[in-house]
Design a protein around this nucleic acid. Sequence first.
DNA 1: ACATTAAGTGATT
DNA 2: AATCACTTAATGT
Length: 216
Amino acid sequence: MNNNQLILKEKFIKYFSSILEEDLMNEILEVGHFDTIAAGELLVDVGDNLTHIPLIFKGSVKIIRHINEDGELVIYYLKTGDTCAISFINCIESKKSVFEGIVETDMEACFIPLDKVDEWLVKYKSWRRYIIDSYHFRLMEMLASIDGLAFNTLNERILTYLTSMSERSNENVLHITHQQIANDLNTSRVVISRIMKQLQNEGKIVSSRNNIELLE
DNA sequence: ACATTAAGTGATT
DNA sequence: AATCACTTAATGT
């Protein structure tokens, strides 16, 4: 057991001990696989066989839905305290992921093997609670995502996209290109550029090559 | 200096 | 709001 693992475990305890009961925490510390994953890494790809579920205690993961070869859309983000219950339920049946997950900001997580996830549902009340809550939360996030698509203008979608990204990174200045935003929102770069200029004129942002500063 | 990548723009649908 | 067909600007080698 190296030092790094101990530090990760301590952080994990700090964040999760208020949510999960003690016996369960001890079991997690025993069977969980603690790891750090750098920003930009591909956590899961569409069709991947899932073997573990992450309990995230630092960083964020971008969850992307692929429609065709060239169509993709960001559905939601997993953050500290989150797990992906959607993929767990899905795993019981097919064991294959329907989403792509890319680490957005450096992540620290504890990976739980699937059979344990299942076993603990019966064994621990706090685990049941946590998984069900998480499932509910994912569903709400997905609803928000659908609402955004159906009822918001692209203008509004871009603003929410930028502010939520700023919240996750605790930064007012985002290092991102118009092209990347276009990819995440499934639109074209030209359209983003035009709206960005509009937002700049409205005094909401300052945009320059490779970075966007959010005002207010 | 030249090539590559990011962003701006007018016209068209 | 999307696409085309550019132009201009910023950066890397």
